[in-house]
Design a protein around this nucleic acid. Structure first.
Lengths: 106, 106
DNA sequence: CCTATATACCTCGCCTGTCAAGGTATATTT
DNA sequence: AAATATACCTTGACAGGCGAGGTATATAGG
């Protein structure tokens, strides 16, 4: 497996939105979930992950709140908005189109 | 159809290499071929195309030579190298892997 | 007790590919 | 004479990925 950043570029936000569809989550957990899903062959780099959170929140696709952990490091939880769900669905459709387009060109 | 640059990013070079597999060609022709293949729903922007040529040539994946047109604008023809063919084949494989990976994450 | 590791967050600044805007030159069509 | 098609090219801005670095809390091992 040798997937370059350029191939993944543009999917980071969709990957995050997908994780938030089922439940609110936080950065560390999302990153671990993605590693587990791919048998540890892929991970979002932390800097990539957190800059994506910033963009998603600015765009109104997610909102965030601090968890109330009694112990351990603090966690910032993210929640997907209805607009985020709409964009996720659109991105999925676009991906299906992109696969066909790229398959026809390479 | 609404494929963003970020989704296509990273495929430009493979798209060009693919066009050069069947015959030597030049920028303008390659661009037209791509537009025709996608029913004019997609085109490589010229600046993108020419900067990709530079990268591919620097990397030794293509070589170039001037055509000997008796009339009309001059054409710079590109030819794929054996290394270019090898990289193309690898990129195709990587794309199959990437599709599976992304499908599992979004 | 001290050190290492895991959890959990974050920013700065570089790098790279895309592309809008602008340019050049030749030939044909209106 | 002007517009269009063919054919090439460069510059500089922009955006996303990410290496490197930083902070803080809790637990496990020696």
């Amino acid at each position: 497996m040798n997937i370059t950043s350029d191939i993944l570029r543009g999917h980071t936000e969709t990957i995050i939105l997908k994780q938030l569809l089922s439940k609110d989550s936080y950065g560390y957990e999302i990153n671990k979930a993605i590693q587990d899903l791919t048998n540890h062959e892929f991970e979002l780099k932390e800097a990539t992950l957190y800059s994506a959170f910033r963009r998603l929140e600015s765009a109104g696709l997610i909102t965030s709140y601090w968890g109330d952990e009694a112990t351990g490091a603090r966690r910032r939880y993210y929640m997907i908005t209805s607009e985020g769900k709409r964009v996720y669905a659109q991105n999925r459709k676009d991906w299906e189109d992109a696969k066909l387009l790229i398959d026809s060109l390479i």
